[in-house]
Computed example of a mutant assay.
Amino acid sequence: MELRQLAAFLAVARTGTITAAATELDLAPSSLSEQVRALERSLHAELFHRTPTGMRLSDQGQALLPHARSLLAQAEQARRAVAGQPRRVRVGTLETLAASHLPGVLATLAQRRPELAVQVDTMPRTALLAGLAEGELDAVLLLDLGPVLGGLGFTPPPGRSPLSAARLAFVDLDTVPLALVAAPGHPARALGVLTAARVAAQRLLVTEPGCSFFLALHHLVAAPTDLVPLRSLATMRAWAAEGLGLALLPEFTVAEDLAAGRLVRLPLHESPPELCLRLVWPADRENTDPDLKQVLYALTA
C-alpha cells in the first residue's frame, strides 16, 4: 500500500465519485482511478461497488476505512514532526459563541497544549455538523439540550458519504442559562408570573427558524401565535428594549441591559430551558487519531 493510494481511496469514499475525488486531489480522473485499482490489487479485494451513480464502499472497503485514516494521520504527524510544524486542530463554532465562550476554551487548550496551531471557523450548526461528518473539522462547539445529541430539536445531517455515518461523541463543558426579557414598561409585566399559554399569546421576537434560541423558545412555548423573525440576537435585544416584543435570550447577552434597567426579566411559571455548551467530535477519530484524543482531553479535563 502507498500513502497516495490510501488518500485516493479516502477521497473516493468521501465524495462518492472518481470525478469529484480527482477534483479534490487535483488529479486526472484516470490517474486517481488507477491508484484505487492498484490498491485493490495489492489487497486482493474489491473496495468499492461501482454503480452508474457512483462508488459505494464494499464490506472490505468499510474494513479498510479506519486503518486508512489512521495511517494517513500518523504520516501527517511524522511529516509535521520532521518539518518542525505544529499539529493543526480545526475547531468550528457558532457565531454566537465565538466571542462569549470560545476564547475560554481556546485559552484552556493553549495552556495545556501550547504547541498546537488552532484554526477556528464560525458557521451555522448544520454546516458545523456536516464539517465533522466529512472530516473537515476536528471538533465543534454548539448549543444543545438534554442527554442526547440533537435534544434541542435538530438532527445531525447524514453527510455525503460512508465517512459521514461515524457516530458523533460529545461532552458538555458549561451551561448557558436563558432569560425571557422585555422593556420595563411592557404590558406583560402586569400579568405576574407567566404561564406558557400567556407567553404564547405575546408578540415574540425570535431568530431565524432552526437557530438554537428559536428551538429553545419552542421548548418553552408549545404554540406561539405572533412571531417576529429577526436576524441577530443584538437586534432582538434592541427591539425588546424598545417595547416591541418579548425575547428569549442567553443571559450573557442581556446581563448589562438587566443591570442597567433597559430590560427586565419576566417571571415564568416554568423555568426556560438551560442550554448546554457542547463539544462534539467524531467518535471513531479517538482511535484512528491518537493525538486528537489528547487534544480533546486537554479541552475537557
Rank of each mutant, 00 (worst) to 15 (best):
G146I: 09
E95H: 12
L116C: 06
L71S: 11
S70A: 15
P162L: 09
L116A: 07
G131A: 05
V171F: 01
G61D: 03
T93V: 14
E136H: 14
V105N: 12
P147D: 13
Q62D: 12
Q74G: 08
L106W: 04
R79E: 08
G159Y: 10
R87A: 09
G159F: 07
L143K: 08
L145C: 07
G92Y: 06
G159P: 11
P147C: 12
L137A: 08
V120A: 05
R113W: 09
R160T: 14
R79Y: 02
S164D: 13
S161A: 14
G153F: 09
A99Q: 15
A98N: 12
V91I: 15
T155C: 10
L142V: 13
A166E: 11
A68H: 03
G92A: 10
L132F: 06
R160A: 14
L71C: 04
A165V: 13
R167W: 08
D59P: 07
G159N: 08
T93S: 15
L72I: 06
T122Y: 00
E134L: 09
A130C: 00
D174H: 00
R88K: 03
P66R: 00
A81K: 00
A63I: 06
A139G: 12
Q111N: 13
T126N: 02
A83I: 01
R80E: 08
G135C: 04
E76M: 01
L149T: 10
S70Y: 03
L109H: 05
P157K: 10
Q74R: 11
Q62L: 14
S161D: 09
A68R: 04
E95T: 12
L71G: 00
Q85M: 08
L145R: 04
A110H: 15
D172S: 07
T126F: 00
P86R: 01
A110Y: 11
A98M: 07
D172R: 02
P156M: 08
Q74A: 14
R79A: 14
A75F: 02
A130Y: 01
L129A: 01
S100H: 14
T108F: 01
Q85L: 15
R112T: 12
S100M: 09
R113S: 13
R167H: 15
P156T: 13
R160I: 10
D144W: 11
L94F: 07
D121L: 06
Q74D: 10
G131V: 07
R79S: 06
A110E: 15
G153H: 07
Q77V: 02
Q119V: 10
R113I: 09
V140M: 08
L109I: 12
P147T: 14
L106Y: 09
A83H: 01
P124C: 04
S161C: 10
